[in-house]
């Protein structure tokens, strides 16, 4: 008998939560450090050094801001989306689909959410569609062409077993 393979475990969820918090904290710390550096530059400003201090404040602010924007738009948001998705897969009500797996090579994204690959399960004449989160798609990629039972939550693959 085949075992059910989960895409996410409780430990994965905890790890995602921890990493997401760390990335958020790093972005907040860099933002705070940038602000403190700029305030310090303002405090050290005199009429004679004002032009140099202004350039320094702009440079610090631009660089710090860019790092924060990058962190927020990439690791922080991505980890939050994935954590929310993992939570949904673990908590949500599951339905099952059976068939031979075909996984698309074209990665897609829902605006403000996760990246995913569309997949289909073909059982005779019947074709059922679903999706799998891109960061966990490799596990399913290895099962392409095989007959599977897929456990799906809200249209997303949560677990599978080979039949």
């Amino acid at each position: 008998m085949e075992t059910i393979r989960e895409l996410y475990s409780r430990q994965d969820l905890q790890r995602l939560e921890k990493t997401s918090k760390r990335a958020g904290l790093a972005a907040a710390l860099i933002a705070a450090a940038t602000l403190i550096a700029c305030v310090l530059l303002c405090c050290l400003t005199t009429i004679d050094n004002a032009a140099a201090m202004e350039k320094a404040a702009v440079a610090v602010s631009v660089l710090g801001g860019w790092i924060v924007i990058y962190l927020y738009n990439n690791p922080v948001k991505e980890l939050r989306y994935e954590r929310g998705h993992a939570e949904m897969l673990l908590e949500g009500e599951r339905e099952t689909l059976e068939g031979v797996l075909t996984l698309s090579k074209q990665r897609m994204r829902i605006r403000g959410s996760i990246r995913f690959y569309p997949l289909t399960l073909t059982d005779g004449n019947e074709t059922r569609r679903s999706k799998v989160i891109a960061s966990r798609a490799e596990a399913l990629r290895a099962m392409e062409g095989k007959r599977l039972r897929l456990y799906v939550v809200n249209g997303y693959a949560a677990a599978w077993e080979e039949l």
């Binding site: 303002c42 400003t45 201090m53 202004e54 404040a57 702009v58 602010s61």
Partner: peptide, 23 residues
């Protein structure tokens, strides 16, 4: 977003330093 931030920084600090150094 990066371009907008750079522009905002230039204008914001320009304004702040004008206030700081004005007599």
């Amino acid at each position: 977003k990066y371009v907008l931030w750079a522009l905002l920084s230039v204008f914001f600090w320009g304004w702040i330093f004008t206030l700081l150094t004005d007599a």
